[in-house]
């Protein structure tokens, strides 16, 4: 890898993927963001899709929030915090993701599924994977699974189960590795044919 590629910190925003009132995923997103911010060589920021100014009378690039697009363009990887609503992902998260394309190509993405039940959002993660693939993102094989989220955090949003720290560390290790490798690939490994 070039010296320049090595010295730039990785930028990995955490996207809170729901706008619902009373969303428990906000606790998860704040926890994930705080843990990610502790890692050396990683810069992060929390993106709340509730704050995005997305048009719902346009499509694709015409609907985009310029600041969100700039954040994704600068990113080396993304973490999506996604609640499971009736086994699916929030429609407004899909709308937000669809406003960009070239900004995603060959970048890593990891998903933290959130559910009130015991399965930690596994069904929403599985449903989201083909979308992420079509956007040009590269999914990692570790997930964050936040089961019974109403018990995992107290009313102030403090984590009540310390095991999530270690689980998240494993998730981040894989995501950072993938982000580094893909950055090198984007910048230095040419597609066949020049």
């Amino acid at each position: 890898m070039s010296a320049r590629t090595d010295t730039r910190p990785l930028f990995i925003p955490v996207v809170l993927g729901t706008v619902r009132q009373g969303r428990m995923s906000e606790h998860v997103a704040r926890f994930v963001h705080a843990e990610l911010a502790k890692r050396p060589g990683v810069e992060t920021e929390l993106v709340d899709i509730r704050e995005l100014k997305l048009s719902n009378t346009d499509e694709g690039g015409g609907a985009r929030d310029v600041r969100f697009t700039e954040t994704v363009a600068r990113a080396d990887a993304l973490v999506l915090v996604v609640p499971e609503y009736n086994h699916g992902y929030p429609g407004l998260l899909k709308h937000a993701l669809d406003t960009n394309l070239k900004e995603y190509i060959h970048k890593a993405v990891g998903v933290c599924g959130v559910s009130a039940g015991p399965f930690g959002g596994t069904r929403v993660i599985e449903n989201l994977l083909p979308v992420l693939r079509e956007l040009g993102l590269v999914t990692v094989f570790w997930d964050g699974n936040f089961s019974s989220v109403q018990k995992a955090f107290d009313a102030e949003g403090n984590l009540t189960d310390a095991a999530y720290v270690r689980r998240l560390d494993k998730f981040f290790r894989e995501l950072v590795w993938m982000a580094k490798v893909l950055r090198h690939g984007r910048e230095h490994v040419a597609l066949e044919g020049g």
Binding site: R4, T5, A73, R186, E187
Partner: peptide
Amino acid sequence: FHACPDCGRTHA
């Protein structure tokens, strides 16, 4: 899709 090896930005 192209990436700049200096600043990392993607261009299409």
